[in-house]
Nucleic acid binder design. Structure first.
Length: 232
DNA sequence: CCCTGATTCGC
DNA sequence: GCGAATCAGG
C-alpha cells in the first residue's frame, strides 16, 4: 500500500486523536504498526506519551547492531559530544484504550456524589468500525443516572428486603448487579447465579457487557468522528 | 509475555 | 521515502 493523501490524513487525525499506532495500522490496513510510526515521524507529528524513558541522555552507548547484512564500516568517532541537557518536565497524559466493562453502580455506594465535572485531559478512545474514534463506555451510558431520591430510613430489617440479597450476601457465585439505588431501603443485589466467569448473572451480563453500538445507533455528537464512517 | 512509541538503517 | 528490525519502558 502507498501513502495516499487520504491515508496520510487519516493517520494524522487518528494519531493526533490519540489512537495508538497499532489501531491506526489496523484501521488503514496494509501497513504495519512500524510503518505507521515511521510515517508519523516522517510527517513530523510525534510528541505523544511514549513508554520509553524521557531520559534526556539519549546517547547510544551500546547501539546494538540491528542488521549485519553488510559489514559496518569504520565508525568515525567524532569528538563533539557535549549537549547540555536542560531539565524539561514532561507531563505525559496516561492513556488507556480499552477500558474494562462498566460496573453498573458502586456496590456499596455510600459515596457523597462528588461533582466531577470535567476530566478532559486523558482522552479515552477506541476505534470503531470505519475508523472513527468513539468515547469510552464511561460517557456512553450512565447506568443509574437519575438522582436517587434517597430517603434514609433507620436500619430496620423490613420484611421487604428480608429475602433480598444484601451486600453481605454477596459472594463470587451470585450476581452482584445492584437493584435500586444504594441507600434506599429496598436496595439489594440481583442474587441470581452468576454466569460462570462473570460477576453477574447471564441477564445482567448482557447489560454490563454491551456489544458494539450499532452503526445506526443515534449518537450524533461524538466529538471526534475522524471523518466519520467509511463510505464504501 | 503483552503492549506502547522511538530509532536505526538497508532498501 | 519506506518499513522491518530492534530497542526500551510499562
Amino acid at each position: 500500500m502507498s501513502w495516499t493523501d487520504e491515508r496520510i490524513e487519516k493517520l494524522r487525525k487518528m494519531w493526533e486523536g490519540g489512537a495508538t499506532a497499532s489501531q491506526i495500522a489496523e484501521e488503514l490496513g496494509g501497513v504495519s504498526r512500524n510503518a505507521v510510526i515511521g510515517k508519523a515521524h516522517r510527517l513530523g507529528l510525534k510528541a505523544r506519551p511514549s513508554p520509553v524513558k524521557p531520559n534526556e541522555k539519549t546517547a547510544r552507548p551500546a547501539p546494538a547492531p540491528r542488521k549485519s547484512k553488510a559489514d559496518d564500516p569504520v565508525e568515525t568517532e567524532s569528538p563533539q559530544e557535549a549537549a547540555p541537557p536542560p531539565p524539561a518536565a514532561a507531563a505525559p497524559a496516561p492513556e488507556r484504550r480499552t477500558p474494562p466493562p462498566p460496573p453498573p453502580a458502586a456496590a456499596a455506594a455510600a459515596e457523597p456524589a462528588t461533582e466531577k465535572p470535567a476530566t478532559p485531559q486523558p482522552r479515552i478512545v477506541s476505534v470503531g468500525p470505519g475508523g472513527f474514534l468513539r468515547q469510552g463506555p464511561g460517557d456512553q451510558q450512565q447506568p443509574i443516572p437519575p438522582a436517587p431520591p434517597r430517603r434514609l430510613v433507620p436500619a430496620k430489617p423490613s420484611p421487604e428486603i428480608a429475602d433480598k440479597t444484601s451486600l453481605l450476601d454477596l459472594n463470587d457465585r451470585i450476581c452482584r448487579w445492584p437493584m435500586g439505588h444504594p441507600g434506599e431501603p429496598d436496595f439489594h443485589f440481583c442474587g441470581e447465579k452468576v454466569n460462570p466467569g462473570f460477576p453477574y448473572c447471564v441477564e445482567h451480563c448482557g447489560r454490563a457487557y454491551q456489544a458494539q453500538l450499532p452503526r445506526g445507533a443515534r449518537r450524533p455528537p461524538p466529538p471526534m468522528p475522524f471523518g466519520g464512517p467509511r463510505v464504501r
